[in-house]
């Protein structure tokens, strides 16, 4: 469904992504694992178009979207959940969802606020609360719900567990698994391999802007060398 190949991205003179390559198949959950600064977030931002890659291919549903404007990429069915949540603090829960709303997509059961409140019951109880007056965990749920309002086929989740209390992280994992069960394709970026284990089918390990290892989660669990060298575990 998503195939990234030979992707290079620069920030000024810094060469962040260096020939990054990985694939995500329809219906699976894939995780980009790596330490802070390895290039996971930049990879996510390059895919959604917030950062313009210098070269390389990003095939989404067979079409090269590299270098397109973010709103066009989003409308083509890619959802992006940023790492620091970025809910609209002055807007209510309902208004936040409205910003994310896009037309229904062929072959997908369209998301509505009512359906999202079944997935995240907390949000349903605070429809008129401004995003800025919610706890970190509630904001994380809102930012995922907001992205789902765009009826994406694939969602990029950038470190959904970062900075959250362990008890919230558990709830988050359950919600993401529910989405996966609905058939949503997921690309996750994480440092927390413990969190990723419960969700992902496959992993790509990222180090200094390159994909250095790729395989199933089971194979990663068994590979102590990779875990020690790149994940500092």
């Amino acid at each position: 469904m998503l195939a990234v190949g030979g992707l290079n991205t620069h920030y000024g003179r810094a060469h962040i992504l260096q020939d990054m390559a990985f694939e995500v198949s329809a219906g699976e959950a894939m995780v980009l694992l790596g330490r802070n600064g390895a290039g996971k977030s930049t990879a996510m931002k390059s895919i959604i178009g917030l950062v313009r890659p210098t070269s390389g291919r990003i095939l989404f549903g067979g079409r090269d979207i590299a270098g397109e404007a973010p709103h066009r990429i989003a409308r083509s069915g890619l959802g992006y959940v940023p790492e620091d949540r970025r809910v609209f603090a002055d807007l209510t829960v309902m208004e936040n969802l409205e910003v994310g709303r896009q037309p229904a997509r062929e072959g997908l059961h369209p998301w509505t606020p009512a359906r999202l409140f079944e997935l995240f019951p907390n949000l349903g109880r605070m429809r008129d609360r401004p995003g800025g007056r919610m706890s970190g965990g509630e904001q994380q749920m809102l930012t995922i719900a907001r992205t789902l309002m765009g009826n994406p086929r694939l969602v990029l989740l950038d470190e959904p567990s970062e900075g959250l209390a362990p008890v919230i992280v558990q709830a988050m994992a359950e919600a993401i698994l529910a989405l996966k069960a609905e058939g949503l394709t997921i690309l996750l970026a994480e440092q927390n391999s413990h969190f990723a284990e419960g969700i992902a089918d496959r992993a790509t390990v990222v180090e200094k802007g390159r994909a250095v290892w790729s395989g199933t989660m089971a194979a990663l669990r068994a590979n102590d060398a990779v875990r020690a060298q790149y994940l500092a575990l």
Binding site: I48, A74, R75, Y80, E95, V99, T147
Partner: peptide
């Protein structure tokens, strides 16, 4: 609603397809 959202974080608004 979109204008107010863009006032707060225009990049995020774009990433949501606006």
């Amino acid at each position: 609603t979109l204008v107010r959202a863009a006032t707060l974080d225009r990049e995020m608004v774009a990433a949501l397809g606006v």
